[in-house]
C-alpha cells in the first residue's frame, strides 16, 4: 500500500444498472440508471465520516462497492490498497459491515454459534477472539442473549449482536449502513456511545450512512452528501447549509380539541383533532418547551421527532426532491 494514498480511495467511481421494463406485450425497454455517477473522495485511517443522502441517492451502492459485493462499472477504488471486487475475500478480513436492515448473523442459530463460526471463518487467534468477545458482550450487553436464536432477538438486540459480530476480527474499517434505523431512543444512544468509544480507543475508521441527523451530529466530524449518484458536499457538518436552520417537531396529544398552542420558542405547524404539531429549532432543548406546554394545557401524551437528513438536504437545495426533479425536466 503506498503511503500517499488515502486509506479508502475512490476516483471517479461509477455504477450503472441496466433496468429492463416491459413496454407492451413482448417488447422490452432497456434503460440505464446511473446509481453512482463519478464519485471521488478519500478517507484517512481513524476518520469517522457520515455518508448521507436521500433514498436512492447511491449510498448503499457505494458501500456495496467498497465491500466488493458489487463490481464498479467505471472509475478506480481502493480500500487499504486492495481492489475490493477483485480481492473480495482478502479484503473481508480487514473490514466489518453492519447493515441496519439485514443481519449478517445466521438467522436460525444462537448468537454464540454465529460468533463461533465467525471465529473460525475469519481465522481470529483464540486469545484475541476471547478477549474481543468478552469485551463486546460486556459493552453491548449481550450476556443474556448468547443462547437465543437470532430470529428471536428484538431489532435493538439483533443490531447490537450484529455490531459485535462485525468487530470480532478487529476490522480496520467499519461500514455502517443505517445502524440506528428502527431503534428506540435508548438503544440509539447506546449504539452511538459504543461507536464513539470504538473510534476513540481502537482508531477504527468508520463510514456511516444514516437518515438520522443526530447520528451524524454526535459521531462524525466530517460529512459527505450524495444525491443522484454525485457527491454534493464534503466537509464539516456545520458547513452544511441548512443544518443550523433545521427544526424538530413536538407532537402534542391534548385531552380535547383546543385552539393552536402558543408558546415562546416554538411555532405552531398544524392540528388534527386533539393532536398538534409544534416546530422548534433543532439546536434548542425540548425540556423547557415541554414544561411550558404542560403548564398551560391538559396533556395526554407527547413525542419529539428528530429532523431527518432528507429534510436538511431538501433545504440545502431549496425545495423538496420532487420539486427539484420537476425543475430538471
Amino acid at each position: 500500500m503506498s503511503s500517499t494514498e488515502p486509506f479508502i480511495h475512490l476516483d471517479g467511481l461509477e455504477k450503472t444498472f441496466t433496468v429492463r421494463r416491459r413496454a407492451g406485450l413482448i417488447r422490452r425497454e432497456k434503460r440505464e440508471v446511473r446509481a453512482v455517477d463519478g464519485i471521488s473522495f478519500g478517507v484517512e485511517r481513524g476518520e469517522m465520516v457520515g455518508y448521507i443522502g436521500p433514498n436512492g441517492a447511491g449510498k448503499s451502492t457505494t458501500i456495496k462497492m467498497l465491500t466488493g459485493i458489487l463490481t464498479p462499472s467505471g472509475g478506480r477504488l481502493r480500500v487499504a490498497g486492495i481492489d475490493p471486487s477483485r480481492e473480495r475475500t482478502r479484503l473481508a478480513r480487514r473490514i466489518g459491515v453492519v447493515f441496519g436492515q439485514r443481519t449478517t448473523l445466521w438467522w436460525d442459530l444462537p448468537l454464540k454459534d454465529s460468533y463461533r463460526l465467525m471465529h473460525r471463518m475469519y481465522r481470529i487467534p483464540d486469545a484475541r477472539y476471547r478477549e474481543n468477545l468478552d469485551r463486546y458482550v460486556n459493552l453491548l450487553d449481550l450476556g443474556d442473549l448468547l443462547d437465543v436464536p437470532v430470529r428471536q432477538l428484538s431489532l435493538g438486540q439483533r443490531m447490537r449482536g450484529d455490531i459485535a459480530a462485525a468487530l470480532l476480527h478487529d476490522p480496520e474499517v467499519l461500514y455502517l449502513d443505517e445502524p440506528t434505523i428502527g431503534l428506540d431512543v435508548v438503544s440509539k444512544a447506546k449504539v452511538r456511545e459504543f461507536l464513539k468509544d470504538l473510534n476513540g480507543e481502537r482508531g477504527t475508521t468508520v463510514l456511516l450512512t444514516t437518515h438520522d441527523l443526530t447520528d451524524i451530529e454526535q459521531l462524525c466530524s466530517r460529512v459527505m452528501v450524495i444525491d443522484h449518484g454525485r457527491l454534493m458536499y464534503d466537509g464539516e457538518l456545520a458547513g452544511l447549509h441548512g443544518v443550523g436552520e433545521s427544526e424538530r417537531l413536538l407532537v402534542v396529544d391534548l385531552e380535547r380539541e383546543l385552539p393552536p398552542i402558543e408558546v415562546p420558542g416554538a411555532r405552531f405547524v398544524r392540528a388534527e383533532g386533539p393532536r398538534q404539531w409544534l416546530a422548534f429549532p433543532a439546536a434548542d432543548s425540548a425540556a423547557p418547551l415541554v414544561a411550558a406546554v404542560a403548564a398551560a394545557h391538559p396533556l395526554v401524551d407527547l413525542s419529539v421527532r428528530e429532523p431527518d437528513i432528507e429534510a436538511v438536504i431538501a433545504k440545502m437545495y431549496g425545495g423538496t426532491r420532487e420539486e427539484r426533479r420537476e425543475s430538471l425536466r
Binding site: K64, T67, T89, R90, A92, R93, F99, R102, T104, R123
Partner: peptide, 11 residues
C-alpha cells in the same frame, strides 16, 4: 439480497 451477507465474509 441476503446473498450480500455471504459475500462479505472471507470465505
Amino acid at each position: 439480497g441476503s446473498l450480500d451477507t455471504f459475500l462479505m465474509r472471507p470465505a
